[in-house]
Design a protein around this nucleic acid. Sequence first.
DNA 1: CTCTCACTTGAACATCTGTTCATATGTTAT
DNA 2: ATAACATATGAACAGATGTTCAAGTGAGAG
Lengths: 121, 121
Amino acid sequence: MDGFPEMPQEEEKVNRALVTELNGSLPDEEMFYRLSELYKVFGDSTRIKILYVLFEAEMCVCDIAALLGMTQSAISHQLRVLKQSQLVKFRRDGKTIYYSLDDDHVRTIIGMGIEHLTEEA
Amino acid sequence: MDGFPEMPQEEEKVNRALVTELNGSLPDEEMFYRLSELYKVFGDSTRIKILYVLFEAEMCVCDIAALLGMTQSAISHQLRVLKQSQLVKFRRDGKTIYYSLDDDHVRTIIGMGIEHLTEEA
DNA sequence: CTCTCACTTGAACATCTGTTCATATGTTAT
DNA sequence: ATAACATATGAACAGATGTTCAAGTGAGAG
């Protein structure tokens, strides 16, 4: 097989060259993995809601739970995920723990998402 | 129960008011759902890689598959997801189908993600 | 027409994810 | 100390997700 080296049209030649070039300059696997892990965090409506309400002010777990109509446990689990991704930080005040946004990119990322959705036909 | 209306400290009063205020002005459920669905698309390293290689140029399915070292089928499945979210578009040229980015926000969103990752301690 | 190529699609399967429930930790008040 | 409260955590279960494999389009060549 492969006895007849077919002549590709010009367009394909260009593309083939680009593929070869890209092949050597792709970021490493680790980077893509970490990026996708970060976006997975945004890929849950409960977590998006939590981030959204934290846009306004820091808030304790029970307030967030009440606001979103969910159990404290569920919110706590999700806050842990957000904490691990360094998207939220917290401070303790007596029995209460106040959470707040830990990163300015969060606003931009969610903002871009909203733009994308609202610009659709 | 609730026989003793305890007096909360001032800080909590303020927070309580904010929670009440937020409660009325939250975007609807649908919007949070759609946002999270969008980010779910970014939450897979295969799809991130596909978007990344499409930064450079339009590309056909087999090129993407070769570049990422995956089967055509797997790539095709993921392209369908990207298509449904209107993140990529395609054009047919004979037997070949070329995919390309359909939205400028993709670059910004991924850019913010990379910034977030690189800014960590 | 048939054959091949590029791609799509559906079912199946293993893996991952989010919530619930029960339990544990930590802080304050008594 | 005990009780009450705010939060965290672990196990478990249902539902979602990504890849593989096999079969299905659709377009160009012979």
